[in-house]
Design a binder for these strands. Structure first.
Lengths: 230, 230
DNA sequence: CCCACTTTGTGCGCGTATTCACAAGGGCGT
DNA sequence: ACGCCCTTGTGAATACGCGCACAAAGTGGG
Protein backbone atom coordinates (compact mmCIF):
# COMPACT_ATOMS: atom_id res chain seq x y z
CA UNK A 1 0.00 0.00 0.00
CA UNK A 2 1.43 3.28 -1.04
CA UNK A 3 -1.35 5.81 -1.27
CA UNK A 4 0.19 8.93 0.31
CA UNK A 5 3.86 8.46 -0.36
CA UNK A 6 5.85 11.66 -0.56
CA UNK A 7 9.19 9.86 -0.52
CA UNK A 8 9.23 6.88 -2.83
CA UNK A 9 12.52 5.97 -1.25
CA UNK A 10 15.62 6.68 -3.25
CA UNK A 11 16.07 3.22 -4.61
CA UNK A 12 16.00 1.93 -1.07
CA UNK A 13 19.15 3.64 0.13
CA UNK A 14 18.47 5.41 3.42
CA UNK A 15 19.39 9.04 3.61
CA UNK A 16 21.61 8.43 6.62
CA UNK A 17 23.57 5.92 4.59
CA UNK A 18 23.96 8.29 1.67
CA UNK A 19 25.42 10.86 4.04
CA UNK A 20 28.07 8.41 5.17
CA UNK A 21 29.08 7.01 1.80
CA UNK A 22 31.31 10.02 1.02
CA UNK A 23 33.16 9.44 4.27
CA UNK A 24 33.79 5.82 3.43
CA UNK A 25 34.84 6.82 -0.04
CA UNK A 26 37.43 9.23 1.22
CA UNK A 27 38.89 6.68 3.62
CA UNK A 28 38.99 4.07 0.87
CA UNK A 29 40.84 6.43 -1.43
CA UNK A 30 43.40 7.00 1.28
CA UNK A 31 43.84 3.23 1.59
CA UNK A 32 44.11 2.92 -2.16
CA UNK A 33 46.81 5.58 -2.25
CA UNK A 34 48.76 3.51 0.22
CA UNK A 35 48.44 0.50 -2.02
CA UNK A 36 46.16 -1.46 0.30
CA UNK A 37 44.06 -3.96 -1.60
CA UNK A 38 41.44 -5.16 0.84
CA UNK A 39 39.92 -3.86 4.05
CA UNK A 40 37.65 -5.33 6.68
CA UNK A 41 34.52 -3.58 7.89
CA UNK A 42 36.09 -3.45 11.31
CA UNK A 43 39.11 -1.54 10.10
CA UNK A 44 37.25 0.80 7.78
CA UNK A 45 34.74 1.49 10.50
CA UNK A 46 37.46 2.44 12.90
CA UNK A 47 39.08 4.92 10.57
CA UNK A 48 35.76 6.52 9.69
CA UNK A 49 34.47 6.59 13.24
CA UNK A 50 31.36 4.49 12.80
CA UNK A 51 30.09 1.20 14.14
CA UNK A 52 31.22 -1.73 12.02
CA UNK A 53 27.77 -3.25 11.82
CA UNK A 54 26.40 0.05 10.60
CA UNK A 55 29.08 0.19 7.96
CA UNK A 56 28.30 -3.32 6.75
CA UNK A 57 24.62 -2.50 6.63
CA UNK A 58 25.35 0.67 4.70
CA UNK A 59 27.42 -1.22 2.16
CA UNK A 60 24.86 -3.97 1.92
CA UNK A 61 22.47 -1.44 0.44
CA UNK A 62 24.71 -1.20 -2.60
CA UNK A 63 24.90 -4.96 -2.98
CA UNK A 64 27.12 -7.74 -1.71
CA UNK A 65 30.56 -6.49 -2.54
CA UNK A 66 32.46 -8.07 0.31
CA UNK A 67 34.04 -11.47 0.67
CA UNK A 68 33.38 -13.29 3.90
CA UNK A 69 36.50 -14.14 5.76
CA UNK A 70 38.46 -11.52 3.81
CA UNK A 71 36.78 -8.14 3.63
CA UNK A 72 36.15 -5.67 0.84
CA UNK A 73 38.30 -5.09 -2.19
CA UNK A 74 39.30 -1.44 -1.94
CA UNK A 75 39.31 -0.50 -5.60
CA UNK A 76 36.08 -2.26 -6.38
CA UNK A 77 34.34 -0.66 -3.44
CA UNK A 78 35.59 2.77 -4.48
CA UNK A 79 34.08 2.18 -7.86
CA UNK A 80 30.74 1.00 -6.51
CA UNK A 81 30.36 3.87 -4.07
CA UNK A 82 31.42 6.41 -6.69
CA UNK A 83 28.90 4.94 -9.03
CA UNK A 84 26.12 5.03 -6.49
CA UNK A 85 26.88 8.62 -5.60
CA UNK A 86 26.90 9.60 -9.23
CA UNK A 87 30.57 10.53 -9.28
CA UNK A 88 31.39 8.54 -12.39
CA UNK A 89 29.98 11.43 -14.35
CA UNK A 90 30.96 15.06 -14.07
CA UNK A 91 28.58 17.55 -12.55
CA UNK A 92 28.78 21.18 -13.53
CA UNK A 93 28.72 23.58 -10.61
CA UNK A 94 28.25 27.33 -10.63
CA UNK A 95 29.36 29.38 -7.64
CA UNK A 96 27.71 32.72 -6.99
CA UNK A 97 29.46 35.08 -4.62
CA UNK A 98 33.21 35.45 -4.89
CA UNK A 99 34.07 36.76 -1.46
CA UNK A 100 36.44 34.91 0.79
CA UNK A 101 34.07 32.02 1.05
CA UNK A 102 33.53 31.75 -2.68
CA UNK A 103 37.27 31.81 -3.21
CA UNK A 104 37.79 29.16 -0.58
CA UNK A 105 35.25 26.96 -2.31
CA UNK A 106 36.72 27.54 -5.75
CA UNK A 107 40.18 26.65 -4.55
CA UNK A 108 39.01 23.67 -2.59
CA UNK A 109 40.92 20.70 -3.86
CA UNK A 110 38.28 18.03 -3.55
CA UNK A 111 36.09 20.11 -5.77
CA UNK A 112 37.51 19.68 -9.19
CA UNK A 113 39.32 16.45 -8.53
CA UNK A 114 36.45 14.09 -8.52
CA UNK A 115 33.14 14.37 -10.22
CA UNK A 116 32.65 18.11 -10.05
CA UNK A 117 33.60 20.84 -12.45
CA UNK A 118 33.30 24.52 -11.71
CA UNK A 119 31.51 25.94 -14.71
CA UNK A 120 31.50 29.53 -13.55
CA UNK A 121 32.21 31.98 -10.76
CA UNK A 122 29.73 34.82 -10.65
CA UNK A 123 29.38 37.96 -8.60
CA UNK A 124 27.42 41.19 -8.61
CA UNK A 125 30.27 43.30 -7.29
CA UNK A 126 32.02 45.01 -10.16
CA UNK A 127 35.15 45.12 -8.03
CA UNK A 128 35.87 41.45 -8.56
CA UNK A 129 34.61 41.03 -12.11
CA UNK A 130 37.31 39.74 -14.36
CA UNK A 131 39.48 38.59 -11.49
CA UNK A 132 41.01 35.20 -11.98
CA UNK A 133 40.19 32.76 -9.20
CA UNK A 134 41.19 29.12 -9.35
CA UNK A 135 41.94 29.55 -13.03
CA UNK A 136 38.55 31.00 -13.86
CA UNK A 137 37.55 34.53 -14.70
CA UNK A 138 34.80 35.92 -12.49
CA UNK A 139 31.70 36.69 -14.51
CA UNK A 140 28.76 38.95 -13.86
CA UNK A 141 25.71 37.61 -12.12
CA UNK A 142 23.57 38.62 -15.08
CA UNK A 143 25.15 35.86 -17.12
CA UNK A 144 23.82 33.25 -14.70
CA UNK A 145 21.04 32.07 -16.96
CA UNK A 146 23.37 31.87 -19.95
CA UNK A 147 25.96 29.90 -18.06
CA UNK A 148 23.50 27.48 -16.56
CA UNK A 149 22.00 26.78 -19.94
CA UNK A 150 25.22 26.59 -21.89
CA UNK A 151 27.22 24.56 -19.38
CA UNK A 152 24.35 22.41 -18.28
CA UNK A 153 24.79 23.37 -14.64
CA UNK A 154 22.78 21.19 -12.31
CA UNK A 155 24.24 22.25 -8.97
CA UNK A 156 24.26 25.85 -7.82
CA UNK A 157 26.38 27.05 -4.91
CA UNK A 158 25.30 30.18 -3.10
CA UNK A 159 28.10 31.98 -1.26
CA UNK A 160 26.54 35.43 -1.23
CA UNK A 161 25.47 37.60 1.68
CA UNK A 162 22.16 36.58 3.21
CA UNK A 163 20.23 39.34 1.51
CA UNK A 164 21.00 38.16 -1.98
CA UNK A 165 20.60 34.43 -1.44
CA UNK A 166 16.92 33.96 -2.17
CA UNK A 167 17.06 35.95 -5.36
CA UNK A 168 20.08 34.02 -6.61
CA UNK A 169 18.34 30.82 -5.67
CA UNK A 170 15.23 31.81 -7.60
CA UNK A 171 17.31 32.56 -10.66
CA UNK A 172 19.10 29.25 -10.37
CA UNK A 173 15.83 27.39 -10.15
CA UNK A 174 14.28 29.39 -12.96
CA UNK A 175 17.27 28.55 -15.13
CA UNK A 176 16.84 24.85 -14.47
CA UNK A 177 19.14 24.09 -11.56
CA UNK A 178 17.67 21.35 -9.38
CA UNK A 179 20.23 21.14 -6.57
CA UNK A 180 21.42 24.02 -4.44
CA UNK A 181 24.12 24.21 -1.83
CA UNK A 182 23.51 27.23 0.35
CA UNK A 183 26.11 28.88 2.57
CA UNK A 184 24.07 31.98 3.30
CA UNK A 185 22.35 32.07 6.67
CA UNK A 186 18.79 32.07 5.41
CA UNK A 187 16.12 29.46 4.81
CA UNK A 188 15.67 29.17 1.08
CA UNK A 189 12.29 28.72 -0.46
CA UNK A 190 12.25 26.36 -3.43
CA UNK A 191 9.58 24.55 -5.42
CA UNK A 192 9.13 20.79 -5.11
CA UNK A 193 11.73 18.78 -6.94
CA UNK A 194 14.60 21.05 -6.03
CA UNK A 195 17.02 19.86 -3.36
CA UNK A 196 18.63 22.32 -1.01
CA UNK A 197 21.39 21.58 1.44
CA UNK A 198 22.61 24.25 3.75
CA UNK A 199 25.92 24.75 5.44
CA UNK A 200 25.63 27.17 8.28
CA UNK A 201 28.57 28.16 10.39
CA UNK A 202 26.69 29.94 13.11
CA UNK A 203 24.30 27.07 13.61
CA UNK A 204 27.20 24.72 14.15
CA UNK A 205 28.76 27.10 16.62
CA UNK A 206 25.52 27.47 18.52
CA UNK A 207 25.11 23.72 18.78
CA UNK A 208 28.61 23.49 20.18
CA UNK A 209 27.84 26.30 22.61
CA UNK A 210 24.81 24.43 23.85
CA UNK A 211 26.83 21.33 24.66
CA UNK A 212 29.62 23.43 26.07
CA UNK A 213 27.22 25.11 28.44
CA UNK A 214 25.87 21.78 29.48
CA UNK A 215 29.33 20.51 30.30
CA UNK A 216 30.00 23.64 32.33
CA UNK A 217 26.74 23.39 34.26
CA UNK A 218 27.20 19.76 35.00
CA UNK A 219 30.81 19.68 36.06
CA UNK A 220 31.19 23.00 37.79
CA UNK A 221 28.52 22.18 40.29
CA UNK A 222 27.36 25.77 40.32
CA UNK A 223 23.86 24.69 41.00
CA UNK A 224 23.41 23.81 44.65
CA UNK A 225 19.93 22.45 44.42
CA UNK A 226 17.70 24.44 42.13
CA UNK A 227 17.69 22.95 38.66
CA UNK A 228 14.00 22.32 38.64
CA UNK A 229 13.04 22.66 35.01
CA UNK A 230 10.26 20.62 33.50
CA UNK B 1 32.52 8.84 34.14
CA UNK B 2 31.31 8.62 30.58
CA UNK B 3 33.06 5.69 28.95
CA UNK B 4 30.89 4.70 26.01
CA UNK B 5 28.38 7.44 26.36
CA UNK B 6 27.18 9.28 23.28
CA UNK B 7 24.83 11.18 25.54
CA UNK B 8 21.69 11.17 23.46
CA UNK B 9 19.77 13.49 25.72
CA UNK B 10 21.11 16.67 27.12
CA UNK B 11 18.98 17.67 30.01
CA UNK B 12 16.02 16.26 28.19
CA UNK B 13 16.41 18.35 25.05
CA UNK B 14 16.69 16.07 22.02
CA UNK B 15 19.67 16.62 19.79
CA UNK B 16 17.42 17.10 16.78
CA UNK B 17 15.69 19.93 18.59
CA UNK B 18 18.95 21.60 19.55
CA UNK B 19 19.95 21.60 15.89
CA UNK B 20 16.80 23.49 14.98
CA UNK B 21 16.80 26.07 17.74
CA UNK B 22 19.36 28.28 15.97
CA UNK B 23 17.12 28.35 12.92
CA UNK B 24 14.15 29.46 14.95
CA UNK B 25 16.30 32.00 16.68
CA UNK B 26 17.42 33.57 13.45
CA UNK B 27 13.88 33.79 12.13
CA UNK B 28 12.71 35.32 15.38
CA UNK B 29 15.42 37.95 15.25
CA UNK B 30 14.31 38.86 11.75
CA UNK B 31 10.77 39.26 13.04
CA UNK B 32 12.01 41.32 15.94
CA UNK B 33 13.90 43.62 13.59
CA UNK B 34 10.67 44.22 11.76
CA UNK B 35 8.99 45.15 14.99
CA UNK B 36 6.72 42.13 15.12
CA UNK B 37 5.67 41.31 18.67
CA UNK B 38 4.09 37.89 18.52
CA UNK B 39 4.18 34.96 16.15
CA UNK B 40 2.19 31.75 15.84
CA UNK B 41 3.82 28.35 15.50
CA UNK B 42 2.19 28.06 12.11
CA UNK B 43 3.82 31.20 10.81
CA UNK B 44 7.22 30.59 12.36
CA UNK B 45 7.16 27.04 11.08
CA UNK B 46 6.48 28.23 7.58
CA UNK B 47 9.36 30.69 7.52
CA UNK B 48 11.77 28.12 8.95
CA UNK B 49 10.60 25.30 6.79
CA UNK B 50 9.49 22.84 9.44
CA UNK B 51 6.28 21.20 10.48
CA UNK B 52 4.36 23.35 12.95
CA UNK B 53 3.72 20.50 15.37
CA UNK B 54 7.41 19.76 15.42
CA UNK B 55 8.15 23.38 16.16
CA UNK B 56 5.70 23.42 19.05
CA UNK B 57 7.15 20.24 20.43
CA UNK B 58 10.63 21.67 20.12
CA UNK B 59 9.65 24.79 22.00
CA UNK B 60 7.79 22.80 24.61
CA UNK B 61 11.13 21.31 25.64
CA UNK B 62 12.17 24.74 26.86
CA UNK B 63 8.97 25.29 28.78
CA UNK B 64 5.56 26.74 28.08
CA UNK B 65 6.36 30.08 26.62
CA UNK B 66 3.40 30.43 24.31
CA UNK B 67 -0.06 31.82 24.84
CA UNK B 68 -2.94 29.77 23.46
CA UNK B 69 -5.00 31.63 20.99
CA UNK B 70 -2.22 34.14 20.42
CA UNK B 71 1.16 32.58 19.81
CA UNK B 72 4.62 33.30 21.12
CA UNK B 73 6.01 36.61 22.21
CA UNK B 74 8.95 37.20 19.91
CA UNK B 75 11.33 38.93 22.30
CA UNK B 76 10.70 36.58 25.15
CA UNK B 77 11.20 33.56 22.93
CA UNK B 78 14.45 35.00 21.60
CA UNK B 79 15.66 35.35 25.14
CA UNK B 80 14.66 31.84 26.14
CA UNK B 81 16.25 30.18 23.13
CA UNK B 82 19.40 32.26 23.49
CA UNK B 83 19.58 31.26 27.09
CA UNK B 84 19.10 27.60 26.34
CA UNK B 85 21.76 27.65 23.66
CA UNK B 86 24.17 29.39 25.97
CA UNK B 87 24.34 32.60 23.94
CA UNK B 88 23.76 34.89 26.89
CA UNK B 89 27.40 34.46 27.69
CA UNK B 90 30.32 34.99 25.34
CA UNK B 91 32.33 32.06 24.08
CA UNK B 92 35.91 32.55 23.05
CA UNK B 93 36.79 31.01 19.72
CA UNK B 94 40.19 30.43 18.18
CA UNK B 95 40.52 29.91 14.45
CA UNK B 96 43.50 28.01 13.11
CA UNK B 97 44.22 28.33 9.42
CA UNK B 98 43.95 31.75 7.85
CA UNK B 99 43.49 30.85 4.22
CA UNK B 100 40.44 31.96 2.31
CA UNK B 101 38.22 29.84 4.49
CA UNK B 102 39.68 31.13 7.72
CA UNK B 103 39.26 34.70 6.49
CA UNK B 104 35.70 34.02 5.46
CA UNK B 105 34.98 32.68 8.92
CA UNK B 106 36.69 35.58 10.66
CA UNK B 107 34.72 38.09 8.64
CA UNK B 108 31.48 36.25 9.03
CA UNK B 109 29.06 38.69 10.58
CA UNK B 110 27.04 36.35 12.71
CA UNK B 111 30.24 35.37 14.42
CA UNK B 112 31.07 38.27 16.63
CA UNK B 113 27.62 39.71 16.85
CA UNK B 114 26.07 37.25 19.17
CA UNK B 115 27.65 35.11 21.78
CA UNK B 116 30.98 34.43 20.10
CA UNK B 117 34.22 36.30 20.28
CA UNK B 118 37.22 35.53 18.14
CA UNK B 119 40.10 35.30 20.57
CA UNK B 120 42.76 34.58 17.99
CA UNK B 121 43.60 33.79 14.40
CA UNK B 122 46.53 31.44 14.08
CA UNK B 123 48.48 30.04 11.18
CA UNK B 124 51.71 28.19 10.53
CA UNK B 125 52.47 30.00 7.29
CA UNK B 126 54.90 32.82 7.94
CA UNK B 127 53.48 34.57 4.91
CA UNK B 128 50.33 35.60 6.70
CA UNK B 129 51.72 36.18 10.19
CA UNK B 130 51.02 39.68 11.36
CA UNK B 131 48.38 40.29 8.72
CA UNK B 132 45.29 41.99 10.02
CA UNK B 133 42.11 40.05 9.38
CA UNK B 134 38.77 41.14 10.76
CA UNK B 135 40.58 43.53 13.04
CA UNK B 136 42.86 40.89 14.49
CA UNK B 137 46.51 40.26 13.93
CA UNK B 138 47.32 36.74 12.78
CA UNK B 139 49.46 34.92 15.31
CA UNK B 140 51.73 31.94 15.04
CA UNK B 141 50.39 28.49 15.65
CA UNK B 142 52.96 27.97 18.38
CA UNK B 143 51.08 30.44 20.56
CA UNK B 144 48.00 28.22 20.49
CA UNK B 145 48.46 26.89 24.00
CA UNK B 146 49.12 30.37 25.38
CA UNK B 147 46.08 31.85 23.71
CA UNK B 148 43.76 29.06 24.76
CA UNK B 149 44.87 29.38 28.35
CA UNK B 150 44.93 33.15 28.51
CA UNK B 151 41.70 33.80 26.65
CA UNK B 152 39.86 30.83 28.07
CA UNK B 153 39.08 29.47 24.63
CA UNK B 154 36.52 26.68 24.72
CA UNK B 155 35.76 26.35 21.03
CA UNK B 156 38.43 25.67 18.44
CA UNK B 157 37.84 26.10 14.73
CA UNK B 158 40.05 24.16 12.34
CA UNK B 159 40.30 25.67 8.87
CA UNK B 160 43.63 24.15 7.91
CA UNK B 161 44.50 21.75 5.12
CA UNK B 162 43.58 18.16 5.86
CA UNK B 163 47.10 17.13 6.72
CA UNK B 164 47.41 19.52 9.64
CA UNK B 165 43.97 19.05 11.12
CA UNK B 166 44.58 16.17 13.51
CA UNK B 167 47.68 17.73 14.97
CA UNK B 168 45.93 21.05 15.52
CA UNK B 169 43.03 19.21 17.06
CA UNK B 170 45.32 17.35 19.43
CA UNK B 171 46.90 20.59 20.53
CA UNK B 172 43.51 22.18 21.07
CA UNK B 173 42.40 19.26 23.19
CA UNK B 174 45.64 19.16 25.10
CA UNK B 175 45.28 22.85 25.86
CA UNK B 176 41.80 22.30 27.27
CA UNK B 177 39.45 23.00 24.38
CA UNK B 178 36.38 20.79 24.61
CA UNK B 179 34.52 21.72 21.44
CA UNK B 180 35.91 21.62 17.94
CA UNK B 181 34.45 22.76 14.67
CA UNK B 182 36.30 21.07 11.84
CA UNK B 183 36.32 22.23 8.24
CA UNK B 184 39.12 19.96 7.10
CA UNK B 185 38.09 16.86 5.20
CA UNK B 186 39.31 14.32 7.73
CA UNK B 187 37.78 12.35 10.54
CA UNK B 188 39.17 13.72 13.77
CA UNK B 189 40.08 11.49 16.65
CA UNK B 190 39.28 12.96 20.05
CA UNK B 191 39.00 11.64 23.60
CA UNK B 192 35.62 11.26 25.29
CA UNK B 193 34.16 14.50 26.52
CA UNK B 194 35.25 16.50 23.51
CA UNK B 195 32.59 17.44 20.96
CA UNK B 196 33.46 17.62 17.32
CA UNK B 197 31.24 18.91 14.57
CA UNK B 198 32.39 18.79 11.00
CA UNK B 199 31.48 20.87 8.02
CA UNK B 200 32.47 19.21 4.83
CA UNK B 201 31.86 20.79 1.47
CA UNK B 202 32.61 17.80 -0.69
CA UNK B 203 30.32 15.55 1.32
CA UNK B 204 27.47 17.97 0.78
CA UNK B 205 28.17 18.09 -2.92
CA UNK B 206 28.28 14.33 -3.16
CA UNK B 207 24.96 14.01 -1.40
CA UNK B 208 23.47 16.45 -3.87
CA UNK B 209 25.00 14.52 -6.74
CA UNK B 210 23.38 11.34 -5.47
CA UNK B 211 19.93 12.88 -5.51
CA UNK B 212 20.61 14.58 -8.79
CA UNK B 213 21.45 11.25 -10.33
CA UNK B 214 18.28 9.76 -8.91
CA UNK B 215 16.25 12.49 -10.51
CA UNK B 216 17.98 11.94 -13.81
CA UNK B 217 17.69 8.18 -14.18
CA UNK B 218 15.17 7.24 -11.56
CA UNK B 219 12.00 8.24 -13.34
CA UNK B 220 12.56 6.32 -16.53
CA UNK B 221 10.94 3.12 -15.39
CA UNK B 222 9.89 3.53 -11.81
CA UNK B 223 6.77 5.59 -11.85
CA UNK B 224 3.90 4.77 -14.10
CA UNK B 225 3.31 8.40 -14.98
CA UNK B 226 5.16 9.52 -11.92
CA UNK B 227 4.89 13.09 -11.02
CA UNK B 228 8.09 14.66 -9.93
CA UNK B 229 9.43 14.07 -6.46
CA UNK B 230 7.10 15.42 -3.83
C1' DC C 1 38.56 -33.68 3.05
C1' DC C 2 37.53 -31.66 7.18
C1' DC C 3 37.81 -28.37 10.67
C1' DA C 4 38.87 -24.09 12.86
C1' DC C 5 38.94 -19.35 12.03
C1' DT C 6 37.65 -14.98 10.01
C1' DT C 7 34.44 -11.71 8.31
C1' DT C 8 30.24 -10.62 5.96
C1' DG C 9 25.28 -9.87 5.81
C1' DT C 10 21.11 -9.35 8.47
C1' DG C 11 17.05 -10.38 11.80
C1' DC C 12 15.59 -8.22 15.71
C1' DG C 13 14.75 -5.22 19.58
C1' DC C 14 15.27 -0.60 21.26
C1' DG C 15 15.33 4.23 21.42
C1' DT C 16 14.62 8.55 18.86
C1' DA C 17 12.19 11.58 15.60
C1' DT C 18 8.26 12.98 13.09
C1' DT C 19 3.55 13.74 12.28
C1' DC C 20 -1.34 13.62 13.11
C1' DA C 21 -5.13 14.83 15.61
C1' DC C 22 -7.34 16.74 19.45
C1' DA C 23 -8.30 18.34 24.10
C1' DA C 24 -7.12 22.18 27.04
C1' DG C 25 -6.58 26.97 27.51
C1' DG C 26 -6.84 31.90 26.59
C1' DG C 27 -8.53 36.11 24.16
C1' DC C 28 -12.14 38.80 22.22
C1' DG C 29 -16.51 40.32 20.54
C1' DT C 30 -21.10 40.89 21.86
C1' DA D 1 -20.62 37.05 31.45
C1' DC D 2 -20.82 33.95 27.86
C1' DG D 3 -19.60 31.47 24.06
C1' DC D 4 -16.87 31.30 19.76
C1' DC D 5 -12.65 30.91 17.67
C1' DC D 6 -7.88 30.58 17.65
C1' DT D 7 -3.53 28.45 18.98
C1' DT D 8 -0.84 25.85 22.11
C1' DG D 9 0.79 21.61 24.12
C1' DT D 10 0.81 16.69 23.93
C1' DG D 11 -0.82 11.61 23.59
C1' DA D 12 -0.52 8.17 20.32
C1' DA D 13 0.81 6.07 15.98
C1' DT D 14 4.27 5.59 12.66
C1' DA D 15 8.73 5.72 10.59
C1' DC D 16 13.45 5.56 11.01
C1' DG D 17 18.10 4.69 12.51
C1' DC D 18 21.31 2.11 15.38
C1' DG D 19 23.84 -1.68 17.21
C1' DC D 20 23.90 -6.41 19.11
C1' DA D 21 24.43 -10.91 18.16
C1' DC D 22 24.49 -14.71 15.18
C1' DA D 23 24.01 -17.64 11.13
C1' DA D 24 25.98 -18.00 6.55
C1' DA D 25 29.91 -18.20 3.79
C1' DG D 26 34.48 -18.19 2.39
C1' DT D 27 39.71 -19.15 3.59
C1' DG D 28 43.57 -21.79 4.83
C1' DG D 29 46.03 -25.38 7.43
C1' DG D 30 46.76 -30.12 8.41
Amino acid sequence: MTPPEPRPRDRGIPEATVARLPVYLRALQALDDRGILTVSSEHLAETTGVNSAKLRKDLSHLGSYGTRGVGYEVEYLIYQISRELGLTQDWSVAIVGVGNLGRALANYGGFGTRGFRIAALLDADTGVLGDTVAGLSVGHIDTLEDVVGRENVSIGVIATPAGAAQEVCDRFVQAGVTSVLNFAPVVLNVPPGVDVRKVDLSIELQILAFHEQRKADGYAGLDPFGRGPS
